[in-house]
Design a protein around this nucleic acid. Structure first.
Lengths: 343, 343
DNA sequence: GTGAAAGCGCTAACAG
DNA sequence: CTGTTAGCGCTTTCAC
């Protein structure tokens, strides 16, 4: 209703330049079949009139919106911010706009809400950290709608995804702790309905086995990736008759909370207890002592996922594939050799 | 080009339901003039066919896109995340979608890039933390395009904006430090081209004057809101012959870096030196000692700004106005009375 | 090379 | 109450 005033259309440009509006369209779309003289004149007119192509009209006519939807659980964490940065960079290069959906919003609507909005608005979807991927992947795959999952270990689904080497990262970190001399290493898991959480747990267990250390169920606390679990979990672990000398939390938020829990019980980190995290969110280097952690290449994950999505949209890549980016152990000051080795 | 297959249009629904597609449109738009019996039938058909309205077509025909653009400098900081959360909530309620633009991207293009994209895509714009507001406000105001500035103290511009009581917050915090017994209070400013930074500096100075303390230029270090300035600034301040017993940084990032600087020089916080920040970003409560700071109601700022924008878009509010939300001093553990009062 | 014409899927004004 | 009609601004054949 509220039509914007002073809008210049393709017709205005055509009239001014003395050509048909079809020609203007050709110029706009880099069509080669335009005399360069004509092209110049049109370009000049466009500039002079301050013409801006109407996105909606263009999408409607062409069937391509040049918009990508990004579905995220939340924006509060630096974690998502890093991924978003990578997405933004790639989208900027390819000239796509980015519409942001929050899972929270999506959850409020019917199950195929995502599929619906996708259908009516964007060319493809980037889904960050999906808790219940099945909610999306079904309809989306069925409708052959382009999408890529970020940081999710599919448990069987057959769709494009990018993640990190969670198993490897957890294995290396545990190995590092073991080599430091730790024999009893506590572990705080993430939400075990998430593949990433499972893989990290497996990596931890495998490392223990490799070094012939027992996998003690008492030393494994089941968390949910949320900060409070780190505090509670570390608390439980430290109350044990034989408390661990190191605690490996499945993400940095929980690790930081674990540090608090240890401190509140009079432990000094890392002298009395080593704490190790996962993710390397920006805060990890800020806390004291700075957190030793497994870095996920979050920004890169965003970039790679976006590139994949763009290829799928362009029809260049149809194969469902999963890419795993390498993790890296970042040694800082929250880990050290245990005090005594009476493990 | 790549037309999506299996798309159900309003015409399909109409045919199936045995009505004209105009009637379907009425049902879609909650038009009262439809027999409830017909409405039911149409609704049922829509559901059965899995019809989804095409966003672009609707926007094109109606001139309203139900999309709001949000322009942010970055996503890495929890700061923006909080504001975004507020925006998202309100937009969710009003049924608008949100397209995200990064200042970084915008800066790469011509000056009126923002105005252009606005014109062709969204109903309104929310601009978070604009460094050079003039770049946007000019064209936007001229074209009567709805927009609201978030967390920016206009220096003369006459446009809708929401911010916080920066002066008041800085005044109260300084007063708190004085009452604790501090006489020499260092101050690290933000970018002084920003109104918010200026207001905080003024609040600090005013509080000193109120309590008849000298405003010593040596104690004021000019920063830019970026983390490194906190470290450098605190370093300079502490090297002074008569170093301050407290340092008030214009945001939390700098305050946290100031804590590091103090620690690296052998100071204990808060015993030897008090540190105070501004913003209350999520990390503030996480660092050790937890940071005493001035809380800005970031999420609420996002909500209020969105409400304003929606009103402007709806034509309900045309008056340019600025809303200031109250700040609040959050006492934590980085501040204490000075050791001795030989100020 | 360029113009003309047919839609894209929908809203909105106008008939009836 | 409902059908019809004319666009919204642009892409894309198809002629010439």
């Amino acid at each position: 209703m509220a039509k914007r005033p002073n809008k210049v259309t393709i017709v205005d440009v055509a009239t001014e330049a003395g050509v048909s509006f079809g020609t203007v369209s050709r110029v706009l779309n880099q069509d080669a079949h335009v005399k360069s003289e004509t092209r110049q004149r049109v370009l000049e007119t466009i500039h002079r009139l301050g013409y801006v192509a109407n996105h909606q009209a263009r999408s409607l006519a062409s069937g391509v919106s040049k918009v990508v939807g990004v579905l995220v659980p939340d924006l509060g964490t630096g974690y998502i911010g890093e991924i978003m940065r990578g997405i933004d960079v790639e989208l900027g290069i390819s000239g796509h706009d980015l519409v942001l959906y929050t899972t929270h919003r999506a959850a409020a609507k019917e199950a195929n809400y995502v599929a619906n909005l996708a259908q009516s608005m964007v060319d493809g979807l980037l889904i960050v950290l999906p808790r219940k991927p099945a909610d999306y992947t079904g309809t989306l795959t069925e409708r052959k709608f382009p999408f890529v999952l970020i940081d999710h270990q599919g448990t069987g689904e057959d769709c494009a995804a990018v993640g990190a080497t969670n198993w490897q990262g957890a294995y290396s970190a545990t190995e590092y702790l073991i080599k430091l001399g730790h024999q009893r290493i506590g572990f705080i898991t993430g939400s075990l309905d998430l593949g990433a959480a499972l893989d990290r747990l497996d990596g931890y267990k495998s490392a223990l086995r490799t070094y012939h250390l027992a996998v003690d169920p008492q030393l494994i606390y089941e968390g949910t990736f949320n900060q409070p679990d780190g505090y509670t979990g570390a608390g439980c672990l430290l109350e044990l008759e034989q408390p661990p000398t190191a605690i490996f939390a499945s993400n940095d938020m929980m690790a930081m909370a674990a540090m608090d829990a240890a401190r509140d019980r009079g432990y000094h980190v890392p002298q009395d207890i080593s704490i190790l995290g996962f993710d390397d969110i920006p805060q990890a280097s800020l806390v004291r002592p700075a957190l030793t952690t497994v870095r996920q290449p979050l920004e890169q994950m965003g970039r790679v996922a976006t590139q994949m999505l763009l290829e799928i949209i362009g029809g260049a890549r149809s194969k469902t594939s999963r890419i795993e980016l390498p993790t890296e152990l970042i040694q800082r000051n929250s880990t050290a050799a245990p005090k005594d080795r009476t493990g």
